[in-house]
Design a protein around this nucleic acid. Structure first.
Lengths: 341, 341
DNA sequence: CTGAAAGCGCTTACAG
DNA sequence: CTGAAAGCGCTTACAG
């Protein structure tokens, strides 16, 4: 029988059933079941035993409705097939679990911006979650803000400027600077910077901008390629620039770096012999075997801070609190794809 | 203010508020809001406008409690930091979205077996989900079975023998056979098979068993290393066997393959010059650049079948239905880490 | 220590 | 086409 049907044995067991079986009132059963309030130890024992015997599972929705509060925090996630998001998801879960926070997750559809995001947001709000952790750039501050005074919102991963929305985020500009400094220190002065356009990936945009200005300040000439969402977008332009004399290609993400290396390989160019290549993210398994020069983003720190902030907001009330805004810096992972000129 | 507080403006808006503002009864407001039942078009317009103006978001928990049914399907997920699970998660979401199924996800803690899984299960059941998709091997049939007649359960990824629990799973034994045949065809006759022990990863165990029997049937001698959960476990034994004359190391997962390749590299052995190495999973980004010889598991097909099966069970009632059990076979990805002897 | 009663926000027959 | 009423399963003051 479908879960939508009435009459399934197990899940139809209610507190009333348990109470009746134990010969007490629903009120007493409720108290004993959650171990709050006063009740005789032996009464509780009996109630617990009956609940166990009957296979009672508390109806969370009814419980929270009646209690007027919610124990779970909603997590909005971006497509987890991207390892960077998969790992962030995983760490957020771990951290929430460690702190005794229940997380319920919805992901937003693949369709860029629009109705889908709002729909996911409403599903979470409809569940009356106690808080919202947003781990996707796909949703804008404007979409979030209307709810910021109803529920604490913490953005994880991406920076946010809107008032009332807290963040634990990657310091993307600093990451761009670190990578650019490294490339400069290797002696490169003609560099291609390949990233997604601003509206495609804001993180990549931030990194790329910082790379560019650092490179220019360091005396290098820069060819900036603002590409589409697909990792292969813009790769051809990058190769053209290399044939034109650029000695390094800085990619704003590991995926673009992989795409560039594939293209270079099939073009018969060697890395780092003919050209140096850098990426950013550093969470690909096997990155070490490939020798990728990249920057490992601080996923663990961001996840921990996001959950910690949420817990703080939940327990202390967010009215008094300042908006929390915490940037985290990763570590440079020098590999063998970038070498001195 | 915290979400636990009463008195937040937006989320405190109820149907009663909307109804009052529109000058109708709660019953009428409900109907108009969901567009079911009879109501005057202009009445609906007015109600919708008021709802919009007041920022009404239906309380899903109350709605489903009152309606006596649930629209969402629960998904139990394993740690998404493993790309294979991250991708499966992503595809399950996409597929559910395409079919108009709402998914709510909980992940199980890192602690192997035990209370944690049961807790996650209860959280989902407590939400009175309409169905359960289980995408983790960490939970056993015995833990699932008690609920199988209360709610349709579909296992995604791993095979299941318990009655009443449907599956869409990887054909792991066949995958093992395919890889072993490939290695045999390359002329290898002394082979190491490296996998997690049966209780560590059942999938790896199935693959490894099939590899072993296929190899033996093909006239090869096999050294079987049943290792722990960490990818580096058992790598030393594998290397010993190589020094002892084995010409190929077959790993039951890509992670182990990476670990073996790292170890071989630091031991000064070349791949595939000194020894061939194979993996299994094939979902690592950059696997092509590494030239991994592996087998790409059919994540997309498994995800699609799991969701389709769930939808079927939900709409047609599972009482009449046979237990659905669908194995899917992946494709061999010959790379440059395995060569003819 | 325990129970009767009201109520959480919404829906659903059932009368109009 | 619309509303009054009962009820979903649980919790929480408030009396005992």
């Amino acid at each position: 029988m479908s879960g939508a049907d009435a009459g399934a044995p197990g899940l139809r067991v209610t507190v009333s059933d348990v109470a009746a079986a134990a010969g007490v009132s629903r009120a007493t059963a409720t108290r004993a079941l959650k171990g709050e309030g006063r009740f005789a130890p032996e009464t509780q024992e009996r109630i617990l035993a009956e609940a166990e015997r009957l296979g009672y599972v508390r109806n969370t929705m009814a419980a929270e409705l009646a209690a007027g509060r919610t124990g779970t925090v909603g997590l909005m996630l971006r497509d987890a097939s991207n390892p960077a998001y998969g790992l962030l998801f995983s760490r957020l879960q771990d951290e929430a679990h460690r702190r005794g926070l229940d997380l319920v997750t919805v992901t937003i559809g693949a369709d860029v911006q629009g109705a889908e995001q709002v729909n996911a947001l409403h599903r979470l709000l409809g569940m009356r979650v106690a808080g919202l952790i947003v781990a996707t750039g796909g949703i804008t501050a404007a979409q979030l803000e209307p709810f910021a005074d109803q529920v604490p919102i913490v953005r994880a991963g991406r920076v946010e400027t809107a008032e009332r929305i807290h963040t634990a985020h990657y310091d993307d500009p600093e990451h761009g600077r670190m990578l650019a400094s490294h490339v400069l220190s290797l002696g490169h002065r003609r560099v291609v910077v390949l990233s997604g356009a601003e509206d495609v990936s804001f993180a990549e945009h931030l990194r790329a901008s910082a790379m560019q200005s650092t490179l220019v300040a360091g005396g290098a000439s820069v060819t900036l390629v603002a590409a589409g969402a697909a990792p292969t977008d813009g790769v051809d332009e990058a190769l053209d620039a290399v044939r034109d004399g650029a000695t390094a290609v800085m990619c704003a993400s590991d995926y673009r770096q992989l795409a560039v290396m594939r293209a270079l390989r099939s073009a018969g160019l060697s890395v780092p012999g003919d050209v140096s290549v850098t990426g950013c993210d550093g969470i690909l398994p096997g990155a070490d075997l490939l020798g990728l020069t990249t920057l490992r983003i601080p996923v663990e720190a961001v996840a921990a801070a996001a959950v910690e902030t949420m817990q703080l907001l939940l327990t202390s009330g967010s009215d008094a609190a300042e908006t929390v805004r915490q940037p985290f810096v990763g570590t440079l992972a020098p590999g063998s794809t970038a070498a001195a000129i």
